[in-house]
Simulated assay, not measured.
Amino acid sequence: MLFRQLFEPVSSTYPYLLGCEETGEAILIDPVLPTWQRDLAEVATLGLKLVLTLDTHVHADHITAALRLKHEAGSRIAHPAVDGLPCIDLPIAEGTPLMVGSLRIDPLFTPGHTDGHHAYRIGNQVLTGDALLIDACGRTDFQSGDPTALYHSVSGKLFALPDETLVYPGHDYEGRWVSSIAQEKTRNPRLGGNRSLESFVALMNGLNLAYPKFIDYAVPGNRECGVCPAGVPDNLSQYCDQIGESRQG
């Protein structure tokens, strides 16, 4: 397997490029609109053909590049079926592996940050999206978020993976790239150290985070698989291509 962790610096998002060395087929997971050209260039540099894009959830802080890449590269759009998006080509769900050439991607339903969130396990690696971040987790105070659901997703499903499983998050704001299940179980300030459900819910409900500045445009745009919606005010128009900082908490 060819594996590249890419980075979109404005929204601090990690897109992931996975390629099958046998067939030359590639998939981009959580691609971001401002870097679609760079990401396609990386695909070409590796001698691959982009056949799929896949998002972990409907994002609130950036616009996915899924639709743009479909138009430019002919890739199909895969997305969690539970979100019911009419623009997708391939609905995915836990229990049904996604194959890209000889690569096997196992979807894991991990709601809580959003009600449709999925993580993706590939061998000894898991792409955790916004459910589990390095020393943190995604917010639960908007977009059908639910701290109880997130607690069970992480403690009951992600923390049940082998300790040596490498954790690749959807974002990081401190320059960190990779963690492990063992590390997050031990030291994650929000979910590690056998924190109780009641303590976690109280913590998340008391964060009092600022309302995400781009959410009102990102969510409808991403429900169309990557369209900058009409009506974006002038002071936010650059977010369609270059998105300002929006921490996930």
Rank of each mutant, 00 (worst) to 15 (best):
E72W: 00
A131Y: 02
I181L: 07
A60S: 14
C87M: 02
A149C: 09
R68W: 12
V154F: 00
C137K: 05
L127H: 12
N194F: 11
G101C: 06
P169M: 02
G112E: 05
L191R: 06
V82R: 15
V82F: 11
R195W: 03
G123T: 06
P111E: 06
K70Y: 07
G95A: 09
Y173M: 03
V126N: 09
G123Y: 01
I134V: 06
P80T: 03
I63V: 13
S75N: 11
T186M: 15
G112Q: 00
Y173E: 06
L90Y: 11
P97E: 10
V201C: 00
I77Q: 07
N124P: 13
T186I: 09
T165D: 11
L85H: 05
L85P: 07
A73R: 02
S155H: 14
S196A: 08
H117F: 02
V126M: 09
T114D: 08
S155T: 15
E164K: 13
G170M: 08
M99Q: 11
G74P: 01
G170C: 02
Y168D: 10
D130Y: 07
P162H: 09
R76C: 11
H118T: 13
A149M: 07
D115L: 13
R104K: 15
G170W: 04
I88H: 09
G84N: 08
I63W: 12
Q143T: 13
H79M: 11
D163I: 04
H59S: 09
A182D: 14
T165R: 10
L132N: 03
K185G: 03
G156T: 06
K157W: 00
G156L: 01
A119P: 08
L133Y: 06
K185I: 05
A160L: 08
H118G: 11
I88T: 09
L158P: 05
S180T: 15
F109I: 13
H171V: 04
T128P: 04
E164M: 10
T148F: 09
A78L: 07
T140P: 07
G192D: 07
G74V: 05
S153M: 02
I122G: 00
A182Y: 00
L127T: 12
E174V: 15
Y168F: 13
Q183L: 15
T110R: 09
P91M: 12
A119Q: 06
D172Y: 04
G175V: 11
S179Y: 01
A160S: 15
I105K: 04
S102I: 04
P107F: 10
W177K: 12
P97Q: 09
S180G: 00
H117S: 10
Y151W: 06
I105R: 09
H113D: 13
K185H: 06
R104M: 12
D83E: 13
M99H: 12
A182W: 01
A182G: 04
E94W: 04
L150P: 05
L98N: 06
D61Q: 12
S75H: 06
H71T: 14
L158C: 03
N194K: 14
G175A: 08
S179I: 01
G116I: 05
M99L: 12
D83T: 08
L98Q: 02
H62A: 14
A73V: 03
A65E: 08
L85Q: 01
L67K: 14
F200R: 02
L133T: 08
T110S: 08
E198R: 10
G101S: 01
Y151V: 10
H113M: 13
P86S: 05
V100D: 02
A65W: 05
